[in-house]
């Protein structure tokens, strides 16, 4: 499953481009330029991009933007998007109130 990745391999310099100011992750307001720059700073995986920038860490947990982010990262690394592992989805699948979550062991009372 794991593949050797040399984090010093040459992917070229970061050069700003038209469209860099476009917002990609709307929940956290992360732009295309920020994502491209992060790749050049060494964030070669979707998981690292997410942890570094918070892209896909907002309310929708990346359900809207993760495809777009993946495309941008793949292009910077000059690989196919299919070669990038998605970031992990985690429980709960929808935001859930603390008071509801906390009720998990009170079934007997109902």
């Amino acid at each position: 499953m794991n593949t050797l990745s040399d984090r010093s391999r040459d992917i070229g310099e970061f050069v700003s481009q038209p469209g860099d100011e476009m917002i990609i992750c709307r929940c956290e307001e992360i732009t295309k330029g920020e994502i491209r720059r992060a790749v050049h700073e060494g964030m070669f995986t979707m998981t690292e991009i997410r942890r570094y920038l918070r892209a896909g860490m907002g309310l929708c947990q990346g359900q809207t933007c993760s495809k777009l982010v993946k495309g941008i990262v793949a292009r910077e690394l000059k690989v196919s998007p299919a070669d990038l592992e998605p970031a992990t989805s985690r429980v709960p699948m929808r935001p859930i109130e603390m008071k509801v979550f906390a009720n998990e062991n009170e079934d007997e009372d109902e």
Binding site: M57, L59, Q61, R90, V91, P92, P95, I96, E97, M98, K99, F101, A102
Partner: peptide, 19 residues
């Protein structure tokens, strides 16, 4: 969550997005 609510009643409505 139960531990938190014992100390912060106001947080009962805060939504958990990830564990």
């Amino acid at each position: 969550c139960r531990g938190i609510m014992k100390y912060f009643p106001d947080l009962a409505d805060a939504k958990i997005v990830r564990t």
